[in-house]
Design a protein around this nucleic acid. Structure first.
Lengths: 155, 155
DNA sequence: CGATCCTGGACATGTAATGTCCGTAATATG
DNA sequence: CATATTACGGACATTACATGTCCAGGATCG
């Protein structure tokens, strides 16, 4: 049970896109900035584009730019864009299988185990939705050099 | 990003062990109850035993029994026993890699991205720890037949 | 027109969950 | 004591999915 690395890549890349300003940046440059695989990061950026978090610009001098300010992008937005779903627990209804399932009447309610796990995940989702990327940028800005280095690397 | 099925198996099996009462039940019977793979469920039960949630009894008429009442077993206990860890996000410190990493001074603080993700996961863990299996049993008991069927199947 | 860059699919690789098998140890029963 | 039953634990095969690569298209700028 482990989140895809693409989430980490996407979060740092979105923060870099913000620090550089408005112009689009190519996926190759964004990959070089953190030593990532260019073609694979490109896949993640396409998912961010489909989710409406970034805008893709084809052609020379093209690339990706933020679709909206970091204040309007939550951690949940990014996780769902990359992972596709934030559902950790998948109920397979084993209460309906085996001997117990055969002897039990077909259930009409939702599985109590499933419901309990979903309640916990909802707390996670809310905590993800309560934090936006601007909050993280605020922490980064307390460290000197960071913004300057990013601008140097991405021109 | 998906939780192991073993967590679902373990939760239902622990609930069954409670409904049957005190005597140990073999992993084969517990697997038949929900149509699960006997040898694989046995692995999960061994992990629950190592975590101290169940007690294993070798020999004929042996099996597994609860180590403590359901009031003292939380969802977090079970998830950690099966998954080994509840850490979803793994920071690979990509801020130290690539061109940005080379130009930046070695960081002394924890990565802000990592910190934010950990805050969200902590909310999840707390929600898991706030629910015990006795709560789920309470919901199950509102459905008729359940307890009776389990006792019939597991003798 | 040609170079650059995104798009999207196909494909290969690596890793972890899932599932099976078998030999060993422990213990209740006859 | 002998045997059957059960847990224990390692080795192995299978499957699913994340990761990574590659290539043929399409869009756009100069």
């Amino acid at each position: 049970m482990r989140m895809a690395k693409g989430v980490e890549w996407a979060l740092h890349t979105l923060l870099n896109l913000d620090m550089i300003g408005g112009g689009p940046v190519g996926s190759g440059q964004l990959a070089e900035a953190h030593g990532l695989s260019a073609s694979y990061l490109n896949k993640q950026l396409q998912q961010l584009a489909r989710a409406g978090l970034v805008v893709s610009v084809p052609g020379p001098r093209g690339g990706f730019r933020l679709a909206r300010p970091l204040e309007a992008i939550t951690l949940l937005d990014v996780v769902e864009a990359i992972e596709g779903s934030t559902q950790l627990f998948h109920c397979t209804e084993i209460r309906c299988c085996g001997k117990i399932g055969e002897l039990s009447p077909p259930p009409t309610d939702t599985c109590a185990v499933n419901a309990a796990m979903r309640r916990a995940e909802e707390a996670w989702r809310q905590a993800l939705a309560a934090q936006c990327l601007a909050d993280i940028r605020g922490e980064l800005d307390r460290v000197p050099m960071v913004r300057q280095v990013v601008r140097t690397v991405l021109e």
